[in-house]
């Protein structure tokens, strides 16, 4: 428990120094906050949901990237994530995330690596008639499969695919800028893959919905909510949908700080998994 905190704490200087170095090159051609923040699987989005936006501020003739560390603490578990991404010409985003899920009450860790690709099919978050539409793939792999296997997971790696649509309204209700994102994901990941893929109840991909709605109180401060449907493939314990209420602050194009209240329902038979999430992101 303590060591996990230490690892996360030791990563903070890395992110902060990236943030200090970043202004040199953080002249990306997109507007503030249009890259979202790093979600728990490493892609650009909110906290739980990958959005159609691509990471960083790279425009069509530029490239960019992000580095992020995140942690969610709920009653019996702690999720720590390290994520990096690159964005090539606001067309293709490649990301990598390393997740550690600490079972603080039960004891032990679940770990997962996620390699992601997101391709912008077309449209734009702000301009023109068409909303931004992106197609994403995530290759997920458990790096420790003992526990997932013991509870009935069928395999230790798999691919999730999703289609995301995002659109912002510059002057929506209350004359504020609003963002709406809808994502449909094909997945058979148990607890997003931390408990392996497929199970005794179901072993095929299902189409599930994920949504995000956010409002910019100011162009650097967004308040939003996310909801993520999840499958329930394992007989040993029912899986809950996840939701969060987040606030993201973009003091500059180099740094983003996200705080959230998260409701993860019941995980591995333990109910009431609510708690807080904090994420720091540096963009370059």
């Amino acid at each position: 428990m303590k060591t996990r905190m230490k690892i996360l704490a030791s990563l903070l200087p890395v992110v902060l120094s990236c943030a200090l170095v970043a202004p040199v090159s953080a002249e990306g051609g997109r507007l503030l906050a249009t890259g979202g923040v790093t979600m728990i699987e490493g892609a650009a989005g909110g906290g739980l949901v990958p959005w159609a936006v691509l990471s960083s501020y790279a425009e069509e003739d530029e490239w960019g990237g992000t580095v992020a560390v995140s942690q969610a603490d709920v009653n019996d578990f702690r999720l720590s994530v390290m994520g990096v991404s690159v964005n090539y010409r606001n067309r293709l985003e490649l990301s990598f995330a390393k997740q550690t899920f600490n079972l603080t009450t039960i004891g032990g860790d679940l770990t997962q690596n996620i390699l992601g690709a997101k391709y912008r099919l077309g449209g734009d978050i702000l301009y023109g008639q068409m909303p931004q539409i992106s197609l994403g793939l995530q290759y997920k792999e458990n790096t420790r499969f003992g526990l997932p296997q013991a509870v009935g997971a069928q395999r230790d790696s798999d691919i999730d695919a999703y289609l995301a649509v995002s659109r912002a309204w510059l002057a929506g209700p209350f004359d504020r800028t609003w963002l709406v994102n809808g994502t449909v994901r094909a997945t058979r990941a148990n607890e997003t893959g931390l408990l392996g893929f497929g199970g005794d109840l179901n072993d095929s991909h299902e189409l599930l919905a994920e949504v995000a709605v956010g409002v910019f109180l100011h162009r650097s401060l967004a308040l939003g909510v996310e909801y993520k449907q999840k499958p329930s493939n394992l007989g040993f314990a029912e899986e809950s949908d996840w939701s969060s209420l987040f606030m993201a602050w973009f003091p500059s194009k180099s740094v983003a700080i996200t705080g959230a209240y998260v409701d993860l329902g019941e995980i591995a038979g333990l109910a009431g998994q609510e708690g807080f999430y904090l994420s720091l992101q540096a963009s370059f």
């Binding site: 209350f174 709605v213 209420l245």
Partner: peptide, 19 residues
């Protein structure tokens, strides 16, 4: 659903009346 209710309450509390 807790998160959605909290979101709506926040919006109604924070948002000023539109001129």
């Amino acid at each position: 659903m807790k998160c959605f209710s909290a979101f709506v309450v926040c919006i109604l509390l924070i948002m000023p009346n539109v001129a």
